[in-house]
Nucleic acid binder design. Structure first.
Lengths: 253, 253
DNA sequence: CTTGACTCTCACCTTACGTCATAGCTTAAC
DNA sequence: GTTAAGCTATGACGTAAGGTGAGAGTCAAG
């Protein structure tokens, strides 16, 4: 059999780069049938065939090392690999769906709240994350909302920390507004955001009613942890928050 | 403000590795607020906040360089970037769907045809690809099936070449079966596969009828191009094919 | 014999870090 | 004061799948 393909010919026919052929030779995935005395790589039909197989699996996003194994193994292993790969792809697809919905949420927030700054972008958590976070949050803050707890799965602490950071950011912002009127629009806007965060923490099965939210506001007044930001204490913060929350609850809930 | 986070603290709180913080420092994505005299990195709340933003975009699979730009730009650019990224993700998702269906087709084939060897795996082309290939194929083989040609989009030649290679592989296989009974199961199985390939080439709007397929078989007998494989001629191939195709057409179509 | 097309082998660049190696700093215990 | 534990720093190499040259040898044609 004549080995009829030079690197250029094979690369053109198969639609890959010459460098790719070199690479495949280097890693032993596709060796030329022979080498001319000058060292030129020459491929035959068998290699063209193998290249097609390689490209098939490459299109499916198999890594080259796996393609190696697959081509060197039997049909059973191939079946297994394909079935497994399908699962991987499905997982990937699911993840992308989540990402897209996260983007949608974020876009919505950005468009709606005109005065929302980029610093708050990371607030666009997906629903699933918030779901899982609730459990941790409930544990952490010792709320006794015991019903519908078991079926929630727990997430890593870094996610909890994220939420903590969000709250901290909001607090910092609010602490700079204590000289303003608690019923003014800017303040109320932040409070609304706070309300939504709390609602996310509690989840759809634990609706934050008007009364619950007012109660939360009262809690803040009496807990010094919530009225100090960045080490500096801010005694008027408690009363300020209480009034702002109360006003919001009575007018918007 | 006290810069309270060492690399370890920050990494733990945010759920990233220390190396990651080093890296972000190296590329200027997240610089520490200050360095101690010993050179230790110290971060403050502002940096923690920025890290959260970074992680948000990272979760969405933005590359770090883009995250750089986004964090340094205004809200409008952020909105744009998010909207564009959504498109990218959607395209990815679509592609994965195609890949999954390709795997399904391949799995089906492998399970159904027990004597199909791995060498034929790459035959699991997606329907879209086959669609596009038709046009090229029709042009190439000069068939005058002119209706419904315009609305087919053309694909690269490497795809055509793939199909050619497939045909060649099938031919090689069949050429080794010429001593067998053309009506026997193994031969008929290959013929069935051949028929399906032809059908794919012609497409759903150009059904390969019994008569058409028999006619094709006759063509093979009278065209030497089809009866030589790998340089060596195989005169009995024509007659063999003709009988095999005819038998298949009359019994299975 | 030279030009142009083709080929070869290094070898560095890319992403987003992981994984050592080696060395300096800090702090609590002795 | 010293020492050991624990923390930190800066290199520097490795990863996947090639892209992009650089410098040099090879081949067929004029």
């Amino acid at each position: 059999m004549e080995e009829k393909y030079s690197v250029k010919k094979l690369s053109k026919q198969a639609g890959v780069s010459i460098r790719t052929l070199h690479h495949y030779d280097d890693i032993g995935l596709l060796k030329p049938a022979v080498r001319t005395e000058a060292g030129y790589r020459m491929y035959g039909d068998k290699e063209m065939l193998k290249l097609q197989q390689i490209l098939f699996f490459k299109e499916l996003e198999f890594p080259l090392t796996e393609i190696q194994k697959i081509l060197n193994s039997g049909e059973f292993e191939t079946l297994e690999a394909l079935a497994h790969h399908k699962k991987v792809l499905k997982a990937k697809q699911k993840r992308i769906s989540t990402l897209i919905s996260t983007i949608d949420q974020t876009l919505e927030k950005l468009k709606k709240g005109e005065n929302m700054k980029i610093d708050e972008l990371y607030k666009g958590f997906s629903r699933q994350e918030a779901e899982g976070l609730r459990q941790e949050a409930l544990k952490k803050w010792g709320e006794k909302v015991t019903h519908s707890e078991e079926h929630l799965t727990s997430l890593g602490k870094e996610k909890v920390n994220r939420l903590q950071t969000e709250f901290k950011a909001l607090w910092m912002k609010l602490s700079q507004m204590t000289k303003m009127d608690p019923t003014s629009e800017p303040v109320q806007h932040e409070i609304e955001y706070h309300y939504k965060m709390v609602q996310q923490f509690w989840g759809p099965r634990n609706p934050v009613t008007r009364e619950a939210y007012i109660g939360l506001g009262e809690m803040y007044v009496h807990d010094d942890r919530y009225t100090s930001v960045e080490g500096r204490n801010n005694p008027e913060m408690g009363a300020f928050l209480n009034r702002a929350v109360k006003y919001f609850a009575e007018h918007s809930l």
